[in-house]
Design a protein around this nucleic acid. Structure first.
Lengths: 124, 124
DNA sequence: GAAGCTAGGTATCAATTACGCTCTTGGTAT
DNA sequence: ATACCAAGAGCGTAATTGATACCTAGCTTC
């Protein structure tokens, strides 16, 4: 595993690429929403109430560019745009799911560690 | 899976928390480096040549705060600081490893998708 | 005894991204 | 008039990262 560090230039470390890519504020939330099946733009806004219109558009574009999400426009009035996971996106989500399980199981530990750390820096 | 979106406030989605946490520029590189065993500060700098001293310190502090990395100071002269994965950090890396495998297998596809996307926006 | 080395870290400043808010577009239906 | 649906533009702020200089404590060297 560590040979990733020396054998490849830092920039192209594959794990880092996908983690920084999907590690922004909204990407996984969108991918999770789409795991339930194809959704329209406005449905995604309802699924993720805190996201702004701009960030939803922007993040969807990025995921589309990466080939993780497909975008199908129906030029009706009002316009209709359906988003869905591609096969690649679905296969990524199969990797994310166990990670999500780990996160759910261990988030308490991380939170506790943070409290310990913050407490001992303040008063110790 | 999608019930994460509605059942929990956005802020506390566990998957998002760890992905945004570990999704910054340097965290995984450090975690990968430490999977090879405990390392001193200066050894980590050599492992990850592009990282600045500031970012290495800063990221290590964050990982320590999260309970993923341990930090042991030997107050000699010159001082000596050893970093290592905690049990929690090691268990996280067991989840990251399969994701890393996926990344290695599919990065070409993502790169190709990006090229297609960029090409069709330019000339199509 | 002043200068410089070491390993780890801090402080400061600048540049770059990321993100959010608000306004605009364009046909249609209420 | 007003709202809908998807999206783009412009502007401002917050967060992230990088460059540089400085600090600590003992040790060597001139």
């Amino acid at each position: 595993m560590r040979d990733i560090l020396t054998s490849t230039p830092i920039e192209s470390c594959p794990v880092r690429q996908i983690l920084t890519d999907v590690g922004d504020k909204w990407s996984i939330l969108i991918l999770i929403a789409l795991s339930g099946g194809p959704r329209r733009f406005s449905a995604l806004r309802r699924d993720i109430p805190d996201i702004s219109q701009k960030m939803l558009t922007q993040t969807l574009r990025k995921l589309e560019r990466d080939g993780l999400v497909s975008r199908e426009v129906t030029p009706s009035t009002p316009p209709r745009v359906d988003y869905d996971l591609t096969a690649l996106g679905a296969s990524l989500m199969h990797q994310i799911t166990p990670l999500a399980g780990w996160a759910v199981r261990h988030l308490d530990e991380i939170t506790a560690a943070r409290r310990r750390f913050d407490w001992s820096s303040t008063s110790g």
